[in-house]
Write a protein that binds this DNA or RNA. Sequence first.
DNA 1: TTGTGATTGATAGTCATTCTCAATAAAAAA
DNA 2: TTTTTTATTGAGAATGACTATCAATCACAA
Lengths: 148, 148
Amino acid sequence: MNKAEKKFREHLKREGLKSTPERMVILREVLSAKKHFNADELYESIHKHNKKVSRATVYRTIPLLVECGLIIETLRCQGRVSYERTFGFEHHDHMVCLGCGKIIEFKDDRLEELQTQICERYEFKQVEHRLGIRGYCKECVVKRLDKG
Amino acid sequence: MNKAEKKFREHLKREGLKSTPERMVILREVLSAKKHFNADELYESIHKHNKKVSRATVYRTIPLLVECGLIIETLRCQGRVSYERTFGFEHHDHMVCLGCGKIIEFKDDRLEELQTQICERYEFKQVEHRLGIRGYCKECVVKRLDKG
DNA sequence: TTGTGATTGATAGTCATTCTCAATAAAAAA
DNA sequence: TTTTTTATTGAGAATGACTATCAATCACAA
Ligand SMILES: [Mn+2]
Ligand SMILES: [Mn+2]
Ligand SMILES: [Zn+2]
Ligand SMILES: [Zn+2]
């Protein structure tokens, strides 16, 4: 049993919930699948690996993983909520390319520090923040110049 | 006819669209109603003022107002897209209180400057950005302390 | 004033997400 | 281990924000 699984099981116990095979299948898929995903992609990848978990259970389990800090809600793209696994990864922010959909992750300590200062100024107790920059990546800027 | 209305009319003409009474009712409501709103709140406030515009037309007009730069999509709260009027207002970022739903607007030039630098570093052409900080406002921090 | 194409409202459709509920299974108690 | 309690599951129905459809109507340019 790895660290993430242990963390999840402890969270479930703490909340009076049960450790079920379905929940473990979902967790393992989250840990092995691509870092950014939405509920449906998660459901699909579970089924590609020949595991059977219903869509409802996937949707029900995602909030549990969020609550226990293993994944986080990141962006909303085209009406869908997108998540990413955080366990074993550091916090970072995102750039999203409006041309090709590419996601660039970045982290800047000065940015984080500034936000902390701003929250202090407003006596606001930060839980989380999300910075999303939309625009065009290097490649797409060139493509758009070519087109005129 | 005020500046915003002129801008909207010009945008419509430029796009080969027509200036209709319904669109003008919606624009006026946007200009006079509260700064942050979602599609349904806009529809409701129009009807409270005894104007008749269908929900479909409200949904259809919002993107036109966004395209012409009079309003902007800000946050997504509980599955709803939230907008705010920008005409006559400067860019700013938001804090959202998880306790009472209050929205605090703030602007920090150093933060903006840093973001510009970061985009340059990645050769990313920024179109817009959105920083949302979630947490608890001063009042709600106190309330939560009282409860334990 | 007329002709053409855009717009409207009513309503049906879409699609992600949530709810319902009977059958089942996990964990606690015995 | 067996029983009891309670959470969980899957299937499908429901929800709700938003979008598409379409016939009737309107804006506006000529
Ligand atoms: Mn990421
Ligand atoms: Mn604002
Ligand atoms: Zn790109
Ligand atoms: Zn508050």
